[in-house]
Write a protein that binds this DNA or RNA. Sequence first.
RNA 1: GGUGAGUUACUCAAGCGGCCAAAGAGGGCAGACUGUAAAUCUGCUGGUUUAUACCUUCGAAGGUUCGAAUCCUUCACUCACCA
Length: 404
Amino acid sequence: MSIETHTAIALAEIERGSLEIIDKEAIEKLLKTYYQEGKTYTVKAGFDPTAPDLHLGHTVLLQKLATFQKFGGHVQFLIGSFTATIGDPTGKSETRKVLSKEEVHRNIESYTQQAFKILDPDKTQVVYNHEWLEKLTPMEFLQLLSKRTVARMLERDDFKKRYKNEEDIAIHEFTYPLLQGYDSVVLKSDIEIGGSDQKFNLLMGRQLQKAYEVGKQQAVLMMPILEGLDGVQKMSKSLGNYIGVTDEANNMFGKVLSVSDDLMWRYYELLSSESLDAIAGLKKGVGEGSLHPMDIKKALASEIVERFHGEGEGRKAKEEFERVFSHKNIPTQLKEYKLEANIGIIKALVDCELVPSLNQARRDLKAGAVKMDQEKVTDEHFIITQGEYILQKGKKSFVKIVVK
RNA sequence: GGUGAGUUACUCAAGCGGCCAAAGAGGGCAGACUGUAAAUCUGCUGGUUUAUACCUUCGAAGGUUCGAAUCCUUCACUCACCA
């Protein structure tokens, strides 16, 4: 294959799913140089260690980084260790609590560990921005500030809006994009990737690299923000609409299957490793009725489960799913609770953590959502006698109870 | 700094002395129908071993009253207009 062909293939894969690329020519050049001379380049992406677990929303970026690694990129996995300990850059709309150093440290541990399920560790450099940001002298900091103007900062949508509405903008908020951009100066990144909501900050890196005469300006690739399970809001832990990369396999499978058909295509595009052509084919098949959307969704779910739980696990999760939900069987793996003899059904539901309160248990019972050994129970005074039972609330929650 | 308006459950938002655990909408949970999809329909949506009972809740603390989310005082925060 010629260098041109290699480059074109790589570029196409890199572009996939991206929302916008700034300075695509630069990326093309880096790829070409890689194929000509074997010279690698750096790709930076920043992560906030505000939570210990990654979800699929994060992996959209990680997968893109992995793609770069396939084509000569060396990843600069930047942990916002400095910014995370300071506070809230996006104003009161999203009051973020300030994390202690220990918390941040713990988060970073599990965070990176999870990230390496996708990234190639040999081509990844984990860097922490407190290493250089903490060392900035006031003079250096002011020099950094002097590189930009207030007018420029107000170009950022978020700031623009708030300024127009005469809402407060804390002065330190202005410094966040600058600090983030400064990371690119220190790291001399060739490319930075991030979510589309980060556009302003990503571009800041470019501008600061110029201002500091780094000798290059990073290309920028923006990925869309992945919607959560509700299909509307972005995937986030606080909204509870996420699929965590550490989610148990069967649960992960189920969550994927619960997304709407519309959202499924979005997940295909951003999470699957199927080619875009193949996806278009699937879509066509579904549109024509020759393919059942649920089968397509199951394939996606399997793929995702395999990625995080290993080969074979996707198929297993699928089989289990079909056993339980299509054929209405009891799951093979059940959490087991030991309960006292002659316990009331209401109390039992709470003790097994199927419901949060006795009242909720009564409501569910009344609604006909509770089953014991596949038999519906509606009498709230029902007493469970000695034995082993399967207790079920709703379609999805099963528990095994052992009553002494 | 001055003046005025506001702060209600997960969110928005009614309530302006007892009938308020607090309307309505959204969200969520559950049931029916399905494919753990969408759409639709229905029920539920503070807690307490279900009680025409008690407890906690309407920014915070005090007060008036038989009785307060509702009235008064102080404090905190938010918003608007003026300087």
